[in-house]
Nucleic acid binder design. Structure first.
Lengths: 233, 233
DNA sequence: GAGTGGTCTAGACCACTTT
DNA sequence: AAGTGGTCTAGACCACTCC
């Protein structure tokens, strides 16, 4: 075996979460119990748990236990919505409008998304902040992964909370590619600004616990009173 | 003592790097030697070293040793320049023009920068990629921290390499706030595009090993053939 | 072969949370 | 008081690098 022991412990726990043996918000067995069950030392179980915490898959709290990360509107925002206001505080936008349709996947969507879906849901939303439109989002997800999604509209503000609670799909990480653009007439009118207003356009790819690409999202942000925050390390 | 032992080991090592007892590129004492010297167990020294590696301050290589991170043009680019081309590959821009001046610090610069400098160096550069202008950067650093900087012009492509080698100032982390804008006539002509072209404007704050804010930078990126990549975790 | 970091163990004690 | 994770120790053996 070239694979370290703690890695197999890690993988075992990931599998159990993916299989809903351990559900979000619940407590994992203690380090001692996990170690005994998997026939490793407590230190080895601990190392696996620490890596799981660093990946954001579990959360550890001294005196309480280790818990499967529960996506809440708050932490979902914190991890996956990077706009800050002029004071550097996180922006909490409101949902204004939403449309959900099901349609055939475009060729590139089929090629990229998990399991090469023939059909996808397309969720289009406009969010506001301080009473003014702030961003336009077009989210595309594989239809087979989220049966009945359309019937749930209006969807909650934080999609990833729904994905986790209703579909056991836990979003762990995402990448965005940003470009600058000027708004065309259509988008400008939806965001209630003049055509030609500059905006940041973000192309997102989001991955779940099994490292499957389960979402493509195009967000268009106005940056007059907010900015997109990036931490470089 | 509320501070854990490994943290004081960590701080001791950071201090030694800041004081140039350990210089970039050189090997630290082994875990065993550090532990003996500081009267802790090997495991505790190890924990400090692992944290230093996660912060990017040292690099560990099995069989070889632990080394103080050396900023090279390559890794400096990798960590602090997030533009990707259409294939998702890192963009390596060339330097086109550069001006360095020394001037009085503006009020907000004096308030933000380390040690509230009265004078600052302002470095203005245009970078190209594939033969075309790609970005305009205005970098402001405290003059007292970088004596004689102006006389070194033309500065190397990667400023942080110079900061480290010539001034023992090791940049560890940075934050950027991004906005979208349309270029005014001046910037547009410098980047050889039409006025009104959309661009991403990034306001950077860079911090060194001692967590001092030592640089303010405003970068203006064209995003026609590149995009600004962000990893969300 | 000698020296380095990487993995793994077994045990101790501390700090925090809940009952 | 009991149970959790957090720190710390002391030791073993493995994998990799260099001479």
């Amino acid at each position: 075996m070239t694979e370290p022991l703690y890695r197999s412990v890690y993988n075992t726990i990931v599998k159990r979460i993916a299989d809903a043996d351990y559900v979000p918000g619940s407590m994992l067995p203690s380090e001692f119990d996990l170690a005994a069950e998997l026939s490793v030392s407590q230190g080895t179980a601990r190392k696996a748990l620490i890596e799981l915490e660093q990946k954001g898959i579990v959360q550890r709290r001294q005196g309480k236990g280790t818990f499967v990360t529960l996506r809440t509107p708050e932490n979902s925002l914190f991890h996956f919505f990077s706009l800050r206001d002029k004071n550097g505080d996180q922006v909490a936008p409101q949902l204004q409008t939403e449309t959900v349709i099901i349609r055939a996947a475009r060729k590139y969507e089929r090629a990229l998304l998990h399991d090469q879906p023939d059909k996808v849901f397309e969720i289009t939303r406009v969010r506001t902040f301080d009473g003014k439109p702030l961003c336009h989002e077009k989210t595309v997800v594989p239809a087979p992964l989220f049966p009945g999604l359309k019937d749930r509209s209006p969807l909650p503000n934080a999609l990833y909370v729904l994905f986790q609670q209703a579909y056991s799909c836990i979003i762990i990480s995402a990448e965005e590619n940003l470009k600058a653009a000027t708004l065309d007439a259509t988008l400008a009118s939806q965001l209630d600004v003049a055509p030609g207003t500059p905006a940041i356009v973000a192309q997102r790819r989001a991955f779940d616990l099994k490292e499957r690409l389960v979402e493509l999202r195009t967000s268009t942000f106005l940056t007059e009173s907010t900015s997109y925050f990036v931490d470089l390390n």
